[in-house]
Each structure stands twice: as C-alpha cells, then as structure tokens.
Computed example of a mutant assay.
Amino acid sequence: MTDPAPTGVPGAELLAPQVDLPLTEQEAAYVAAARSANTRRGYASDWREFSGWCARHGHEALPAAPEALSGYITELAGAGAKVGTISRRLSSIRFVHVMRDLPDPTDARRVTAVWEGIRRTHGAPPVQARPLMPPDLDDVVDACPTTRSYATRPGEDDLAGLRDRALLLVGFFSALRRSELAALTVADVADHPRGRVLSIPRSKTNPYGTEPELVVLPHAHRAARCPVTALRTWLDAAGITEGPVLRKVTRGNRVTDRPLHPESVNEIVQRAVARADIGPGPWSAHSLRAGHVTYAHQRGASDRAIAHQTRHRSLATVGAYIRIDNAWEDNSAALLAGL
C-alpha cells in the first residue's frame, strides 16, 4: 500500500488514508483540505506523544492494543492531565487508526471502562475565558499605544498599537473567533450605511462554506470605541488595501504582508490586558467573544439576537456563556438578601 504525499505537518503521512494505489496530487490536496491546518497539527502532535509513550513501554502504537491504550490514558490521568486533553488524545488515536482502515482501539471494552472511570473521577467543567467587556474593555483599549516617540527622528503612528485597538474592538463587536479574525481579508469587509458587513467564508459551524455567514460591524456613538473607526484608522495607517486585515508588525514599526496566526491573536489580547492591569483572568482571544455575549445579554439582547451575530446554532450554547449572569436573575436567594 502507498501513502499520499505528506502535507507539510510532521507526522502528516499518518493523517492521510492508506490506499492501494497512489493518490494523485489533486486528490492528496483534497485530503489535506479535509481538516484544518490546526487540526492536522494537533492530531500529529498527539500521535507523536502516544507513539513515543508506546515505544518507551514496549507497545506497538499501530495498531494499538487495548491494554496499551488503557495504560496510556491511566498514566495521563494520574499525571493530572485534564479530561478534555485525554479526550482529544483519544480522538487523534482513533483518527490515525481509521485512516489506516484499522479497528478503532478506543471502542475496546477495556478502554471504554477505564475512560468512563476517568471521566467520573477527574471530570470538571472546562476553564472558561473571562469575558472582556466594558468598562474593562475601555481600559484595555486606552492602554494600547497610538504613537511612537524617537530621540533622533519625528514621532509616528504606533502601528502595533493601532492594530491591537482594531483587533480588540472588531473582535468584541463582531464576536468572531480568533481563527476568523486571523483569516479576515479586506475583500471580506463591505461598506454599509450603518457600518461594515463582514463575510466569513468558513467557520467552525460552516466548514464547507455551504451557507453564507454575515457578521455586522456597527458604527458606535463614541468614536474612541467605534470598531469601524478603529479598523479604518489601522488600515489607513498601515497602507493596507488588499489581503489580510490583521498583520504582523515588526519591532521597527513596519507592517508585513503576513497575517496573524490565531495563536498570535490570543497573545495580543493577553498582552493588551496585561498593559491595562485590570485583574486576573483567565484572559484569551475568546474573552472578546464571551464579552460580546455577556454584555449584550446584560443590555437586554435576546439569546436569538445574540446567536444571530455569533452564529451559534444552539441557543443553549449561547446560554452557557451567560450562566453566571443568569444565576442572579429571578433568584430566591437574591430576594432574601434584601430582608
């Protein structure tokens, strides 16, 4: 049997189907496109970790025996790995076996019994990003530098600071995911009398692009907090007329052609929060999306209106963002506090 060409990700050859005849170049490209680059990297990383563990403990990784897999997840749980981490590792191991037309080792009774016990023993709610919303968001935006001063030459716009302001305000008002912010291009931004309309070609809930997803970016009453103004200011200062919207800026204050990586979006939000010193998190790029949902709810928006912007398919998912705020609504303990 012959494998298709690697996709550029270490260990990627294991993420493609094993076939009797070689795949054509176009077929291999479609196979690679079936999973996002982040997903492929995650699968490959998990598989390297599992296969390394097998080598150290005298087990075959492919195909994996039930006792190898149950021993592996038992060791992970004993070392303090989160249930979500172990679940992701199991998914990666399952995927590699499916691509080899091998039985799924995660279905073995020994593995499912141990896994159920791990979940019951170590299961806990995932750590949620703290919502970033006014007034904290105002402080974070204000802490972004707008100009750079030099001893030997005139000052100039601080391009990284202008980009960060645009990222924060666009991220909050649009409620985009970090991958969507990183992938946003000038062609995706359309003018509208009330602001801008963002077209999202692909998303977590629309991976095949079969349904158009539109997100609105409204003019805000305060210019200093207007996402449209912040976006226009950044694009004009950076001289960006096409291609990626959010780009890397060099230490020498020069804009590159390279778009931000989704993880860079995360780091920019964390650095911006640290500059404002607004308190403990956890903070991440997801704090902007969570902040949109929570703040909109506090301002009286319905779950359906929020889901229209966030593109959540389930209103229950929207409710999960605002459960802490909801806990105080129409609550008997809150009423008793007034006695």
Score class of each variant (00 low, 15 high):
residue 222 R to Y: 15
residue 205 T to A: 14
residue 211 E to D: 14
residue 190 A to R: 09
residue 200 I to M: 03
residue 224 A to N: 14
residue 227 P to D: 03
residue 204 K to R: 13
residue 196 R to H: 07
residue 191 D to W: 11
residue 190 A to W: 09
residue 213 E to W: 02
residue 196 R to P: 01
residue 229 T to W: 03
residue 197 V to G: 04
residue 195 G to F: 05
residue 196 R to D: 05
residue 219 H to K: 10
residue 199 S to K: 08
residue 228 V to A: 05
residue 208 Y to E: 15
residue 230 A to I: 02
residue 220 A to H: 07
residue 226 C to I: 06
residue 204 K to E: 10
residue 192 H to C: 04
residue 198 L to W: 06
residue 202 R to N: 10
residue 210 T to Y: 13
residue 208 Y to S: 15
residue 192 H to R: 13
residue 199 S to W: 01
residue 195 G to I: 05
residue 226 C to F: 09
residue 195 G to R: 03
residue 212 P to K: 08
residue 217 L to E: 01
residue 195 G to M: 03
residue 202 R to L: 15
residue 202 R to V: 10
residue 225 R to H: 12
residue 208 Y to C: 10
residue 189 V to F: 06
residue 200 I to R: 00
residue 202 R to P: 04
residue 193 P to S: 13
residue 213 E to Q: 12
residue 224 A to S: 14
residue 227 P to N: 10
residue 231 L to S: 08
residue 219 H to D: 08
residue 225 R to D: 11
residue 201 P to W: 11
residue 195 G to N: 06
residue 228 V to H: 01
residue 200 I to H: 00
residue 220 A to W: 01
residue 221 H to F: 10
residue 192 H to P: 04
residue 230 A to N: 05
residue 219 H to Y: 13
residue 221 H to P: 03
residue 223 A to F: 11
residue 222 R to E: 13
residue 222 R to W: 09
residue 193 P to E: 15
residue 210 T to G: 15
residue 217 L to W: 03
residue 202 R to K: 15
residue 190 A to I: 12
residue 204 K to Q: 10
residue 213 E to T: 07
residue 203 S to N: 11
residue 209 G to V: 04
residue 189 V to M: 06
residue 201 P to E: 09
residue 218 P to K: 00
residue 226 C to H: 05
residue 199 S to Y: 02
residue 217 L to H: 00
residue 216 V to N: 06
residue 193 P to M: 05
residue 203 S to Q: 13
residue 197 V to W: 06
residue 223 A to M: 12
residue 225 R to M: 12
residue 220 A to G: 05
residue 196 R to W: 09
residue 227 P to V: 10
residue 211 E to S: 15
residue 219 H to R: 09
residue 205 T to R: 06
residue 212 P to A: 07
residue 189 V to N: 00
residue 215 V to Q: 02
residue 214 L to H: 08
residue 202 R to C: 04
